[in-house]
């Protein structure tokens, strides 16, 4: 079930910085985001990245629901952000 967080086959969210740099002008994993499922607010770098899949999945470290989904088909790259209700950048 999604509440099983014992698996170790994930990386921390910092590993998503490269692929996400195609979309964001800043290092977005240092921004904070709100999980649309459980409401947890935390730096995206603390999220759990599952890279050995058909795409790149970033999951909430609290509830394991999906925050971001990125699929690179070669011709295009598609980023699904429906799991995040906001991303917050701090200035300065």
């Amino acid at each position: 079930m999604t509440d099983n967080l014992d698996d170790l086959d994930y990386l921390d969210g910092n590993a998503a910085a490269g692929p996400l740099s195609e979309f964001f002008a800043i290092d977005v994993v240092s921004a904070r985001g709100r999980c649309a499922s459980c409401g947890r607010i935390d730096a995206l770098a603390t999220a759990r990245l599952y890279p050995n899949s058909h795409g790149l999945l970033l999951r909430c470290p609290g509830c394991a629901e999906i925050l971001m989904r990125l699929v690179d088909t070669g011709d295009s790259v598609c980023l699904d952000l429906h799991g995040l209700s906001f991303i917050e950048l701090r200035r300065g």
Binding site: T2, N4, N52
Partner: peptide, 11 residues
Amino acid sequence: PVLSAGPTPRI
């Protein structure tokens, strides 16, 4: 190969 998209369900 195992392609993991998330925590493995234990049913």
